[in-house]
């Protein structure tokens, strides 16, 4: 217990006495973590848009007019029993016509002269994983009561190709940026340790064990990493809210679900990364000077 308070005392005294180094290190963490945070917010939003687009890939199974009510019920049960299916909705011939009317609005009169309802009944099937559309669609092909299965095969596949490229690129970007953050921060820490290598040497000569010397440095690194990260989180959250408000005012039609932004998790990730880099960076950066 006495040791722990000694280590914390040492750490904070040294942070205070080397305040210039402390500020430089905190600012470095702040800037790198801020950029990382902003990129993560962007990527998350892009991802949400992509998901939205992907969800629009639905399978529509058009039924022949000959299908009886019991046929429809059987196939309905079968569809809902498929593990890939999220939801399925039956659209009767009448409902299909109502929809068409609604879509046509003031031009409805062109439907007036129809002798009978030409629209087929259908199932609209949404999937848990839209990537499996062609697999599920294939199961309905060639059934006696099925007229046609449509899921916009080419469009769907093109969408998936594009979204997977965007996802991979943004993942690589985050990893690269994370790497840069680690390098920058550990370099700053190494500089501040280098400036104090003589102190470390003296401590060793007096008979301090490596961990006795290391703990205050680790606590220092943790403090620097954590304070930089906290500031970064505050900036990211405030910045994001500011930008979202502006977007809401000007681009009302945008369908991005901003409210679902996981700022909490994002903040925790930034805090964790910042603290870990600080503490581990200090511990490792010291290694070279401990071999006296």
């Amino acid at each position: 217990m006495a040791k722990i308070s000694f280590f914390f005392g040492e750490a904070f005294r040294s942070l205070w006495r080397n305040y210039f180094m402390t500020i430089a290190a905190v600012v470095t963490v702040l800037l790198t973590m801020f950029v990382l945070g902003v990129v993560m917010v962007f990527v998350w939003n892009i991802n949400a848009v992509l998901k939205d687009v992907e969800q629009k890939v639905e399978i529509t199974v058009f039924l022949k007019d000959s299908a009886t009510a019991s046929d429809i019920e059987t196939i309905q049960k079968e569809i809902l029993g498929m593990p890939e299916v999220k939801d399925s909705q039956f659209v009767s011939k009448e409902q299909a016509l109502e929809r068409l009317k609604a879509d046509l609005k003031e031009h409805q009169d062109i439907l007036k002269d129809l002798p009978s309802n030409p629209l087929p009944a259908s199932f609209e099937v949404s999937l848990k994983d839209p990537q499996q559309a062609s697999l599920v669609a294939a199961r309905f092909e060639g059934r006696s009561i099925v007229d046609e299965v449509r899921f916009g095969k080419e469009i769907a596949e093109r969408i998936f190709r594009v979204t997977s490229v965007i996802r991979n690129v943004s993942l690589v970007f985050i990893l690269l940026l994370g790497g840069v953050a680690v390098l920058l921060i550990s370099n700053t820490i190494r500089l501040s340790i280098y400036a104090r290598r003589r102190e470390v040497e003296i401590m060793k000569l007096v008979g301090a064990t490596n961990w006795f010397i290391r703990w205050p440095f680790v606590i220092e690194g943790l403090t620097v990493g954590l304070s930089g990260a906290i500031l970064a989180v505050v900036m990211v959250v405030l910045g994001t809210n500011f930008v979202i408000d502006r977007i809401r005012e000007n681009l009302l039609f945008l369908s991005v679900p901003f409210d679902a932004l996981p700022l909490w998790q994002l903040g925790l990730v930034i805090l964790g990364v910042g603290a870990a880099i600080g503490a581990i960076g200090s511990g490792l950066g010291l290694r070279r000077f401990l071999n006296v």
Partner: peptide, 8 residues
């Protein structure tokens, strides 16, 4: 790791 104890 015992060197510190020697130096004390």
């Amino acid at each position: 790791w015992k060197v510190p104890y020697l130096r004390r």
